[in-house]
Amino acid sequence: MTIGETTATSILYLDGVSVSFDGFRAINNLSLVLEPGEMRAIIGPNGAGKTTMMDIITGKTRPDAGEVFFDGKVDLTKHDESEIAQLGIGRKFQKPTVFESHTVEDNLVLALAGPRRAIPALFHRQTKAEHERIDEILQTIRLTARRNELAAALSHGQKQWLEIGMLLAQDPKLLLVDEPVAGMTDAETEETALLLREIAQTRSVIVVEHDMQFVRDLGVKVTCLHEGSVLAEGSLDQVSGDQRVIEVYLGR
């Protein structure tokens, strides 16, 4: 298969991507391909460039070099954050970010796919379909009971779930999830793995995570990043058996 064919069929295609901050190469000739419907786990030491890679995919950071294509044909380097979000890429931040002074329900209402302009929002009335969709998502993220509480009142783990719920409401084709289980209890971590596997049945997902047990629970292909490029790729057993991965990451 040639590169061109890979671009055309993959949901996400990064090739030769580099970006520097003040001379420091955070991403260095990074290449990565994600197939439609695939879930991928990304591991790697702190500072490996995992978050920066997501910044590039979502239009927050412009790469100095390289190609970034979404859904076969869309050149992501030509779009900004809101356009990319509307194209169908959702992102959960490393630090959970929800609208703290809104209720759990309102957080989801604002995330729901639909018009994104100011004037229509003035006259918007919630439809029955929207209400049902919110019920559904609340069930999925296990927050039905807290529907009318302010997001600020949620625990750290629940905020992480709410943010994932907002991504679901956005109905993206590709989800980027940055360290979703940081600060979660073991039980919450297990639930989150289940939740992500459920989500991955209908969309493509990239999960960045340090927690090895969690990555094992996901049971998907793993990519290990180091110093801004791919160090190893394969099943978790293959990657964690790789001598260089042990040296730079697991062995420490």
Binding site: E81, S82, R91, T97, E100, S101, L110, A111
Partner: peptide, 13 residues
Amino acid sequence: RDAESRMRFLGYR
């Protein structure tokens, strides 16, 4: 007011 970047990544301006 509370989380401008969250909004942006939800597709708003």
